[in-house]
Design a protein around this nucleic acid. Structure first.
Length: 264
DNA sequence: ATCGGTACCTGCACGC
DNA sequence: TGCGTGCAGGTACCGA
């Protein structure tokens, strides 16, 4: 489901969690706990308030009263829902002093864990795609010996981009997904940076993209998918030149682009 | 140290 | 109807 705009939308939709007390917690599925023990996790959060909720790239961090964090990653199909009924794929249930928070994930690629400190894998992420300075972004491009599409998906380079927005940013910049990152300098680096920031900002304003099952914390769908210009538009005419959009694999991920507008 | 390929899991759309 | 195939917003891990 979720890239930066979707995760940002979820976090904003869950602002009401701030100050809520967790009365009880149930963790049902070991596979999404990243090795954590369900009983210990429950004991670590029960009786404590949620102090804040925020985002680092695609990770959601809920700061828990007295220190520690509930760290959530939505993977491909994860959902955090304020209210509603537990279902077949509900892996965590937090009963609050007002309402209930459910964590659902049919594919179980996401995770929910409790950690005393911010986990190392989060500290090792690159700068946020909406916070990185252009100079750092451009310098990073020059240092990497890989295709630009793969690099945009690498969370150690810049955190928050995923398959949809990487394709959309590359289209806006007129850059082919197979272009070598190190060769993008000057004006092309600038266009990519601007395209990335613009597409992410517009997507947040639209509440994210709901391709199949994404919803925010209140169960609302996003509608930025209407504005996708290449993602999952294989065969459709390019909005700029009319050429049929093509799909190729880059780093094992579907990549959609206009063969005429996007140059290597 | 960096890269690409693969594994993980469920559900859906499609063709036969 | 049912079965096989391919595809899907993700990261982690492995060997080269």
């Amino acid at each position: 489901m979720p890239e930066l705009p979707e995760v940002e939308t979820v976090v904003r939709s869950l602002a009401a969690l701030t100050g809520r007390r967790i009365l009880s917690a149930e963790f049902r599925c070991r596979r999404v706990l990243r090795g954590g023990d369900p009983e210990e996790m429950a004991a670590s959060v029960e009786g404590r308030r949620i102090v804040s909720i925020g985002r680092r790239g695609k990770f959601i961090l809920m700061a828990i009263e007295g220190g520690g964090y509930l760290v959530v990653h939505l993977g491909m199909t994860g959902r955090l829902l304020l209210g509603g009924e537990a279902g077949k794929h509900t892996h965590a249930i937090l009963s609050l002093d007002r309402g209930v928070l459910l964590y659902d994930d049919s594919r179980q690629f996401g995770c929910i864990q409790y950690s005393r400190e911010i986990p190392d894998r989060i500290l090792k992420l690159g700068p946020d795609a909406l916070e990185v300075a252009f100079e750092d972004f451009a310098a990073g491009l020059r240092r990497r010996k890989t295709r630009i599409k793969a690099l945009l998906l690498n969370q150690g380079f810049v955190r928050g981009m995923g398959n949809i927005y990487a394709d959309e940013a590359l289209f806006r910049a007129g850059i082919h997904p197979l272009a070598m990152a190190s060769r993008l300098r000057g004006e092309r680096a600038r266009r990519l940076y601007d395209g990335m920031v613009a597409v992410l900002t517009e997507a947040i304003a639209a509440g994210g993209s709901s391709i199949s099952d994404y919803v925010d914390g209140q169960g609302r769908k996003g509608f930025f998918q209407m504005a996708h210009r290449v993602y999952q538009r294989t065969g459709e005419p390019c909005a700029a030149c009319g050429t049929a959009i093509r799909r190729i694999l880059v780093a094992q991920r579907s990549s959609h682009f206009c063969p005429r507008c996007q140059k290597r």
